[in-house]
């Protein structure tokens, strides 16, 4: 195993270990997403036909709100006891720290999302079993996009006075192409339309977004964290 990969996995394991000991971010994200799912039922008739047409959008709204909670803390949790300084001065590339944190966030978010998906299916009578694997693919790609942008901006805003305000202000506009693609794809798949035709275009947008921003983040993270 290359030293870069080993450092990445060590950071990811560290983050996951400390998360699963407290389950802070996980519990917060999960209960928050369930609360939003309940609130949606007041915004419109949850039993109507219209529900099917907007199901993908709702699901991704839940995902993106829930993700903000855990991503916000990704770098902020290192502020205590100057852990961030210690991490940065460790003899490993900053990109490995970033990638490790991103992987830990990704794993955590996927867990929250799978649970939220099950709750969503229970409450709103959605039928996605027929297209389960394509939906999981879209969730995997969309979540990676959210994770990369979220982790980068979590590092970028970590020292700011108004961190909690600045992070969503910067992150959500950046995420629009990815969320648009993920929402359209998920809605189509939940309505039984398989991947193909127009859909593939959106899948390309989503994949391209992931690829471009992963590359950008890996290049710029050194400037963001160290300077």
């Amino acid at each position: 195993m290359s030293p870069f990969l080993r450092a990445t996995l060590t950071i990811a394991a560290k983050d996951l270990r400390s998360e699963f000991r407290t389950k802070e971010a996980f519990n917060a994200s999960l209960s928050f997403s369930v609360v939003i799912l309940v609130l949606f039922s007041f915004a419109f008739d949850p039993t109507s036909e219209q529900m099917q047409a907007i199901s993908g959008g709702l699901l991704w709204l839940v995902f993106s709100f829930a993700s903000a909670l855990s991503l916000n803390r990704s770098f902020a949790r290192e502020l205590q006891n100057d852990c961030l300084d210690a991490l940065v001065s460790a003899p490993i590339p900053v990109a490995a720290i970033f990638l490790g944190k991103a992987l830990a966030n990704y794993f955590l978010l996927i867990l929250v999302e799978i649970t939220a998906l099950a709750v969503f299916a229970l409450f709103y009578d959605t039928h996605f079993a027929a297209q389960l694997w394509p939906i999981l693919l879209v969730i995997a790609l969309g979540t990676w996009g959210m994770t990369v942008i979220g982790t980068t901006f979590s590092a970028l805003t970590v020292n700011l006075r108004m961190r909690e305000v600045m992070l969503p202000t910067l992150v959500y506009p950046m995420l629009v192409p990815a969320l648009m693609a993920a929402m359209t794809l998920t809605t189509d798949l939940m309505n039984g339309i398989p991947l193909g035709g127009d859909n593939l275009l959106w899948l390309r947008v989503l994949t391209g977004f992931d690829f471009i921003y992963t590359l950008l983040a890996m290049v710029f993270i050194d400037i963001v964290v160290v300077g």
Binding site: T152, L156, P173, M174, L216, F220, I223
Partner: peptide, 10 residues
């Protein structure tokens, strides 16, 4: 500067 680069990709 980093935000400007990310924004330009958009």
């Amino acid at each position: 500067a980093v935000v400007s680069v990310f924004g330009c990709v958009d």
